[in-house]
Amino acid sequence: MPSRAGVSRLVWPLAALVALIALNAVFTPSFLTLRIQDGHLFGSLVDILRNGAPTLLIALGMTLVIATRGIDLSVGAVAAIAAAVTCVHIAGGGSAIVGMVLALALCVLLGLWNGFLVTVLGIQPIIATLVLMTAGRGLAMLITEGQIITVNNDLFSQIGAGFLVLPIAILISLAALVGVALLTRRTALGMLIEAVGVNPEASRLAGVRSRTIVWTVYVFVALCAGVAGLMLASNVNSADANNLGLWIEMDAILAVVIGGTSLAGGRYSLLGTLLGALVIQTLTTTVYTIGVPTNVTLVFKAVVVIAVCLLQSPRAAGLLRGRASRPSTPDSAEVSAP
């Protein structure tokens, strides 16, 4: 059961999500309408879930990385590499399954590389992953030879655009969420991750293999990024190494922070991450719904995110409660004046 503090951290993200959905419903009366056509569920809410599936998937891995006091800025580049490898393989006449397996295997190697830099060489996570964030795009461009690779493969298209009543992308992300929740909350793994995040040295002295834990979460987030890259590429049947997954690492980190997970490491909330990812994607939809000019879109998103984070902050909440409860007395300087 989540603690009272954990529940309180989810109140504002949930309120923000409800407010954004209500705002969209006002501007678009059919926003909440769902319909079934040819056995597939359609609607704006379904579109939000489908478009937010890659962000949710990466945010799940990012949650565990942040819980260990880490960060991974390379997930967007890893997603682009996965898409590039798969599409180049398919375009060359190869099997879609083989292409996706090769791409995900490469993503695991990239996660191992990040983990090696952080755990073995002791490089700060933000610097270690910034290396791959920069070089990864170049690697993806080398794989595609600087071209946008377009493919036409029904099996590959199913990953991002296929349906099993709900879009397959949604089912993959929800399955990952349930799997991570069961693995980390029904076993000791979640407690070990939190222990490493709270105090890595103390957890090591207590017998926790902190290096293995940290290495594992970096591999997992890279694998999540690879699957997200396949979703993004299959949705448009192409791989654009320069733009695919661009800034998705920022959306994933924001989703984790909005969900109440502290960047200082330690306790984390998978449910909060889900809410955060939905807030980010619904906010993006809202920007287009209410007609916010493109040149101020990022500013608008930043203002909303900052507002939600401030409302979650215990210090900000304490200041607001203190101001509300402060009695209307003369100024303290006047009271203490002789």
Rank of each mutant, 00 (worst) to 15 (best):
V11G: 05
W12H: 11
P13Y: 02
A15G: 09
V18N: 04
I21V: 13
F27G: 02
F31S: 01
L41M: 14
D47C: 09
R50F: 11
A59C: 09
R69N: 13
G76N: 02
G76M: 06
A77P: 01
A82E: 04
A84K: 12
V85F: 08
V85P: 12
T86I: 10
H89M: 10
I90G: 00
A105M: 06
G111S: 07
L121Q: 15
I126Q: 11
I127Q: 01
L139W: 11
A140I: 08
M141S: 11
I143T: 03
D154P: 10
A161N: 13
L171H: 13
G179A: 04
R186L: 10
P200F: 09
L205C: 11
I213D: 00
V214Y: 03
Y218N: 13
C224Q: 01
S238Y: 02
D240I: 04
N242R: 07
L246I: 10
M250I: 12
L254N: 14
V257E: 03
G260R: 01
T261S: 08
L278M: 07
Q281F: 09
T282H: 02
L283K: 00
T294W: 04
V304S: 06
I306Y: 09
C309H: 12
L311R: 11
A316I: 13
A324Y: 15
S325V: 09
P330D: 08
E334R: 15
V335Q: 15
